[in-house]
């Protein structure tokens, strides 16, 4: 079992406030919460704002379940980069005797993992992952490339924490761009500006910065250094609770990483490049609740207008 990251006093107080007001519903496991009606209403309004911001591009809509074929998580190298965050689905395999032993251990809340075997499934860690093989399967991209809206999908990261802004399962609103290198990078850069303006229109004190993914180990430091020096990842940061601002959106240029794995080609046969953006919906809602208070009817009129249109 992974070690639970402790909360600062500020984060713990905010988490307690969220639970007390029915915004978060505690489960007993750090980083796993239900959401009350008010929380979900805000999240859906934020989602609609992102949809509106993307409308001009007329993205193609795709939706995927929060499970991925295990082979995909293997092929993209996730276990090289993020072995500590991955979650894979195991399920019972055995006969009557094993089932009995398993249930007895489960009744005592003891370890019953020896009766579990790996399945063909892994939890989706990033909402864009199913998009690349789906688009690659159609053949070369059309002229001008493709924009795919993967929706606000559930994603999993195994990083138990008492910080209410670090969830193990949350909604990531992802949009993916596939095309020529220049147009993909420009799209990524433009969207980081558009995303910043969107958050600022909601009264959030957001800033943009170069960032790195939380790669694992010493090899990960090398991947992070490469990512930073090539400006492959941009993030939008907002203070929620704790000492550091929290990343609430990221804009990622993958170069040919996914194209090389799935054979994604442009219309003329040249290798395609890809980029994605992800808005962490719960974190944006938390930033709004932290900035404007836990009672949305009392939020500033201009923020309410942006979200609810009245």
């Amino acid at each position: 079992m992974g070690e639970v990251r402790q909360a600062t006093a500020d984060q713990a107080a905010f988490r307690d406030e969220l639970i007390q007001h029915g915004l978060f519903i505690a489960s007993g496991v750090p980083g796993l919460y239900g959401r009350g009606a008010t929380f979900e209403d805000i999240r859906n309004r934020v989602d609609a704002r992102i949809t509106a911001a993307a409308q001009a591009e007329a993205p193609e809509s795709m939706r995927f379940p929060p499970l991925l074929p295990r082979k995909q998580i293997e092929s993209i190298g996730y276990l090289h980069s993020f072995p500590h965050l991955a979650g894979s689905v195991f399920a019972f395999e055995g006969g009557e005797d094993e089932a009995l032993l398993q249930s007895e251990r489960a009744d005592r809340h003891e370890d019953w993992s020896e009766f579990q075997r790996m399945t063909e499934l892994a939890l989706v860690p990033a909402a864009c992952y199913p998009v690349y093989p789906a688009v690659a399967a159609r053949g070369p991209l059309p002229v001008g490339g493709v924009v795919v809206d993967a929706g606000g999908a559930w994603v999993f990261r195994h990083e138990p924490s008492e910080d209410p802004a670090r969830l193990q399962m949350f909604h990531q609103r992802e949009i993916v761009r596939l095309g020529a290198p220049e147009e993909v990078r420009t799209w990524r850069d433009d969207w980081s500006e558009r995303g910043l303006a969107l958050l600022q229109s909601l009264g959030l004190d957001a800033e943009r910065d170069r960032a790195t993914d939380p790669f694992f180990g010493r090899g990960g430091r090398m991947l992070a250094a490469n990512q930073r020096s090539q400006e492959l990842k941009l993030e939008l940061l907002v203070a929620i609770a704790g000492d550091e601002p929290t990343a609430v959106a990221s804009f990622n240029y993958h170069q040919d990483h996914f194209a090389a794995i799935y054979g994604l080609a442009q219309h003329d046969g040249d290798v395609a490049h890809t980029a994605c953006l992800g808005f962490g919906q719960e974190r944006i809602v938390l930033a709004l609740l932290r900035t404007h208070g836990v009672d949305p009817p009392s939020w500033p009129a201009e923020v309410r207008r942006e979200l609810w249109g009245a």
């Binding site: 190298g77 090289h80 980069s81 010493r218 090899g219 990960g220 430091r221 090398m222 991947l223 250094a225 490469n226 020096s229 990483h257 090389a260």
Partner: peptide
């Protein structure tokens, strides 16, 4: 050579030469 392969290369070089690259050298 991919980024992931360069990580494997770095770790294999450490084994082969019995060295450890300091953080400042973990760059492309």
């Amino acid at each position: 050579m991919t980024s992931h392969a360069s990580v494997n290369l770095m770790l294999a070089l450490e084994d082969a030469f019995d060295i450890e690259f300091p953080d400042r050298m973990l760059t492309r």
